[in-house]
Structures are given as structure tokens and as C-alpha cells.
């Protein structure tokens, strides 16, 4: 098998991606920031920085702490607001052959519905419902951490959303399977997981948390085994496609998620360290498929053999 003959394309909720690698929300800005380093046409999709109805300043700095094989962040959804995104960022992103996913977050269900309605009339390809950001005090994660909460918000947003709806799940729950099932029942077209894991780091010399927000979301290689386990659990209980993420920085990492049942993957924290991470992951998946004589990425999705 030569790598030219390998089919990397995937279809998720009716959206065709040229390859299964998507830049994760909050780690890729609106794509422009990476223009110096990669060809944006080379990645399957971009999930943009989490959007809110109005512009948000985010949390006080420090907003980042490095931890073993990972980082904690507490950005708090700093973004220019959904209107500015529609007017200024979508036209830029449309110049590239990559799928655009609008990640939305809000304080109230009405905020989410309003944004879904506005974005339904634009050129984006899908909406990702962020009900899992651990860094904002109101709303958001509160909707995502119970089956009842996720059922209600997914059902209500679905009424206003004319685009495929991806629901992004938080790992900060006792049983992610029941949350996933609730989202599927309420009409989610796909699921993405995991968002960051709530964590804390302390400066022992100052006897204070490193983050001004006290706590933050953990991401990076440290979370990968947890993420793989959750993707595996969820993929086994839902019929809708699952997009896996959590500590992916190489093709091998991505393949783990795909074997566990992910139809596509998102690359997050790795973009901060290596701005070419997304294209490196695409290349790594291709090499893996080539090595094991697969002609299509579909030959590995969910093909894990369990003991």
C-alpha cells in the first residue's frame, strides 16, 4: 500500500472531512495564528475558540500552569463574541478547504439557542456545544455534568440549530456513559470528548494557587489514558459518531483513539508546543495505515480487540 492510495476521509453527521484530524477548540484561535506554520487546507477541520453571545474578557492571569506532562489553563472563554466571529473570522476561514466547527458556550440555555440560530445561517459546517468548560462560573459546565442537564440543553438547542450538532462532554462526571446516552437521546448528531479535567496546582513558596482562578482544566499527554478510556466507554454505548481528544500529539496517539471507537480526533495542547502538530498527526495516521496495509481509515475505527 503506498500512502497515496490511502483514504483518510471521514463523514461525521453528514459533514465530509478530508482527514480525521481537527484542531481542538481553544487551542487553535481562529486558524490565522497558525498561518505562518501550516497549510490550513491540510487539516480536516478547525473547531474555533469557544464563542459566547457577547464579547468576553476571560479570567485574570496567570491563566496557565505547567504540570507533569500537561498544563492547567483557566482562560475563561476570552473571545470577541459570536457576531465578530461571523463577520470577521468566517470569511477568512472559508478561504481554506477545511471544515469549520463553531464551538459555543453560554450562561443560559437561551444564550446557546440564540447563538445556534445565528450560526445556522452562516457558512460553518457544524456547531459544537460546549457544556463542559470548567473555567467559567456561570452556566456552561453546569449543563454538562448531569444526564438531565445535557438532555434539556441538547434538546432545546437542537430546535434552533440547522447545522449538525456536536455535543462536547466533560470528563468531570462519575459516569460519562449516561451523559453520552442522554445527549444522543436528545438529538445530538455527534459527541466530542474529553474536555479538560478539573485540576489545581499550588505554588508552595507563596502558599497560593498558581492560577488566579485557583483551579483550571488539565490537558496534554497526562490526560490521554483517561480520555482513551472514556472514548472507548462512550463509543460502545452510542450509535452516533464520537470525536476523540485528550493528549494527542502524534499519529500513534490518534490511532489509539480511533481503535477505541473515535471516527475522528481533535488535537489540542500539542498545537501550543508544536504548531505543526495537526499535520504531523495526519502524516502519522497515514504512516500507520500504510504499515498495516489498510486502504482506509475506516478499517481501524472501533477495531480494538478486547481481552
Amino acid at each position: 500500500m503506498t500512502d497515496k492510495n490511502i483514504d483518510l476521509s471521514v463523514e461525521i453527521a453528514g459533514v465530509k472531512f478530508s482527514n480525521p484530524v481537527i484542531a481542538a477548540s481553544g487551542t487553535f484561535g481562529f486558524g490565522r495564528e497558525f498561518g505562518d506554520f501550516i497549510d490550513l487546507n491540510a487539516i480536516g477541520g478547525i473547531s474555533v475558540k469557544g464563542l459566547t453571545l457577547e464579547k468576553r474578557q476571560g479570567n485574570r492571569p496567570p491563566r496557565i500552569a505547567e504540570t507533569p506532562a500537561g498544563i492547567l489553563n483557566s482562560v475563561g472563554l476570552q473571545n470577541p463574541g459570536v457576531k465578530a466571529f461571523i463577520e470577521e473570522e468566517i470569511p477568512f476561514l472559508k478561504r481554506f478547504n477545511t471544515r469549520i466547527i463553531a464551538n459555543i458556550a453560554g450562561n443560559t440555555i437561551e444564550d446557546y439557542c440564540a447563538m445556534a440560530e445565528m450560526l445556522s445561517d452562516t457558512d460553518i459546517d457544524a456547531i459544537e456545544l460546549n457544556v463542559s468548560c470548567p473555567n467559567v462560573k456561570k452556566g456552561c459546565v453546569a449543563f454538562g455534568n448531569s444526564p438531565e442537564g445535557i438532555r434539556e440543553i441538547t434538546g432545546r438547542v437542537k430546535k434552533y440549530c440547522k447545522k449538525p450538532l456536536i455535543v462536547k462532554l466533560t470528563p468531570n462526571v462519575t459516569d460519562i456513559k449516561e451523559i453520552a446516552i442522554a445527549a444522543e437521546d436528545a438529538g445530538a448528531d455527534a459527541l466530542s470528548l474529553i474536555n479538560t479535567i478539573l485540576g489545581m496546582a499550588i505554588d508552595i513558596h507563596r502558599k497560593r494557587p498558581i492560577l488566579a482562578n485557583n483551579m483550571g482544566g488539565l490537558s496534554g499527554p497526562a490526560v490521554k489514558p483517561i480520555a482513551v478510556r472514556m472514548v472507548y466507554e462512550v463509543a460502545n454505548v452510542v450509535k452516533i459518531p464520537v470525536i476523540g481528544m485528550g493528549g494527542i500529539s502524534s499519529g500513534e496517539d490518534a490511532v489509539e483513539f480511533m481503535l477505541a471507537g473515535a471516527s475522528a480526533v481533535m488535537v489540542g495542547t500539542a498545537n501550543f508546543i508544536n504548531p505543526r502538530a495537526c499535520v504531523d498527526v495526519v502524516e502519522g495516521i497515514k504512516q500507520y495505515l500504510c504499515r498495516y496495509n489498510h486502504s482506509s481509515v475506516h478499517e481501524i475505527i472501533g477495531k480494538l480487540q478486547i481481552y
Partner: peptide, 16 residues
């Protein structure tokens, strides 16, 4: 100076 993540304006952590 501020604690920085990516250095290229994507992660938004080094706020001032």
C-alpha cells in the same frame, strides 16, 4: 512578562 503558553497568540493565556 506573563506566564505564556503557545507564544503565537492562540492559547490566550498571557493576558495583560
Amino acid at each position: 512578562e506573563q506566564r505564556m503558553g503557545c507564544g503565537i497568540g492562540a492559547c490566550l493565556v498571557c493576558a495583560c
